[in-house]
Nucleic acid binder design. Structure first.
Lengths: 201, 201, 201, 201
DNA sequence: GATGAATGAGAATTCATTCAT
DNA sequence: TATGAATGAATTCTCATTCAT
């Protein structure tokens, strides 16, 4: 698509880049200082942009948080993608998921914490709901492509995962991958549970 | 036993009452405005005390939040107590828990949300950890008195409950008690799950 | 040279003026109420600017004090300049310095006191050291251009002056110019002292 | 002296002890945090007494500072006493004084700083003047028992000492005893200076 | 006499927003 | 379009003081 004023595209591209930089910075700030640390100044400093730019690109802090939550979901999707490609048979699932959770809890603790804070914030700010919903939908879709399976079982399954991560984040000593796997086996028993989920037949 | 200085008791009692009023007000404020709404001024207005009193009774906002989280656990305990007295056989458990959760989500939505926010905050503030831990311990203790049962199964069980509530709080349309019960049945199957938990034999 | 955006210069000039007004006001406040009187509110009221402006132009109170101390040095320089132009032969020096000190103590008592308070504060706040050092360097430089002379004699000389002013500020009845001159003669004896300083040969 | 109510003496003694503890604590607090750090709470914590006791034993902060300054003078007297007993002939004086000053600046830097802050404060608070005057009188009295000697020379002599300490406290690198001695020799030259002071004849 | 309780006032700092350019 | 400047409002925390006991 051509443009009469190429510098406009340059400017637009610059604007998009800057917007992007602000969103990325926001996720880093939430990871570091929590949602309470989200302020125009903090974000601008982290992003390396003028303080007024944050207010310029996002009408309100809420707008910024919506964009950040949505963006973090995409990052999560990419991460899950990478992990699912590592697993072969159903029998490995508990171990694979456990290791993924352990990584989220250990290596990416602050980042994971940030995502949960944003997620919980959706309970208060309706504007964040679509982003939160997308998260659930994406996760659900990974099990069986979004089709089939008892939705109540599905909900229980992901609820357990969410709860395990939540408790791990709060715990003084986070559980190891082995412990997580042991817990996961109770909600991923091939004979009864996963069958109900439609993961296996 | 009489005292020569009843006025001391009177003062102490008044102080305790005021302290109590501040904690109660804090839980209401968190329920209404979220943790972000916790400020000396907001709390003081809600409690009907001078603003400086909040700083007087609690050295820091964190101290106040710790006390509030601890207090909310006690309230939760009382609530669970009431519910456990209603249930007869094991078979009823899923329904009873589902109805309890539905009530937490519907009638006491903001209050429950407040508890989860405080709970998640413990992930960032170590000072809140003991309060958060007490919550888990209390819940765990209710299943079998804290003895026996596979701890990993226990963890998975409560994780599922936590996750169900969390997702319900975020959802546009919260699940009904029936839907929750359906989900719970997957993590409370008498034949496999509850037996592992040591709830039934 | 003209500018396409004269308004920028206007704004910058206004900012500089306001900054200047705040520094001036700070020196007046320290003179009137001491360093203990330095607060955003007090400074702002004295300068006739909004309270938030003080925090806007100076990141911290220390920054403001540094700027104030540095500024007061410049004022002192101007004052000394004026005085040095009045003196002819070496023999007059004690009298001239004595009159200068007497003026600092009498007419500008509060102002001089403010400078000493800022100066002593440098002993606690390293950030003020450079400003304090500049004061010493400026004074030293006036004797012989900073070159030659026994540095220990120089130090003793200015120490005596500092001490005389200090004691005069604390005294119930400040010394007259004549008394100061009599004291100064003991540290400015042409035959031994000033020769060591390199002031005379 | 007998008493009908020995417990009163006990109480009085306790009160005097507590008063003393508060004064001592004040000097430590000023040494540590400067005069700005003097508050009822800080003093009380440092002294290990109830917060309200400070206000009880001293009507105002000024009263407390007066007592503290007076007390610090007595401590200084004891210290000087100890040092004067070490010196034999006049020739040693510069070295002895230099070592004393070096110790004040190095080992007791904060304490010395505190004394200068209190001393300078006397310039603003007339209530502190008597304490400051006593300081000067005591120091002066040590030279020749308070009699004889040219008072202007005396003033210059102590002014130089005061100024040397003042500048040493502000300097990044405090002078060594040797450097101080070199400076002191210029204001303690036996042939002219000390003779004027009446120290030697 | 002595002290815990309580509070109004004030401190520095940070914030979101507005405005002029 | 984009941004430095500016500011009223709000934050937590500390303070001296008063009061009841």
């Amino acid at each position: 698509m051509s443009s009469q004023k190429p510098e406009v595209d340059g400017r637009r591209a610059k604007g998009a880049r800057r917007r992007r930089a602000i969103v990325d910075a926001t996720l880093r700030v939430v990871a570091r200082d929590g949602i309470a640390g989200v302020s125009h100044r903090n974000i601008a400093r982290e992003a390396g942009v003028p303080a007024a730019s944050v207010g310029y690109y996002f009408d309100s802090i809420d707008d910024l948080l919506v964009a950040t939550l949505l963006d973090s979901v995409e990052v999560l999707i990419a991460e899950i993608d990478r992990m699912t490609s590592e697993v072969g048979s159903d029998e490995q699932w508990p171990g694979v998921v456990a290791r993924m959770l352990a990584r989220m809890i250990d290596e990416h603790r602050e980042r994971t914490l940030a995502e949960y804070e944003l997620y919980l914030l959706a309970a208060r700010r309706p504007a964040l709901r679509p982003a939160a919903r997308r998260w659930i939908e994406v996760a659900t879709g990974y099990v069986n492509g979004g089709e089939g399976g008892d939705p109540h079982a599905m909900r229980a399954f992901f609820a357990a995962i969410d709860g395990l991560v939540l408790q791990a984040l709060v715990a003084d000593e986070p559980p190891t991958a082995e412990e997580l796997e042991a817990s996961l086996r109770y909600v991923m028993q091939p004979g009864s549970y996963l069958r109900s989920l439609g993961v296996i037949s």
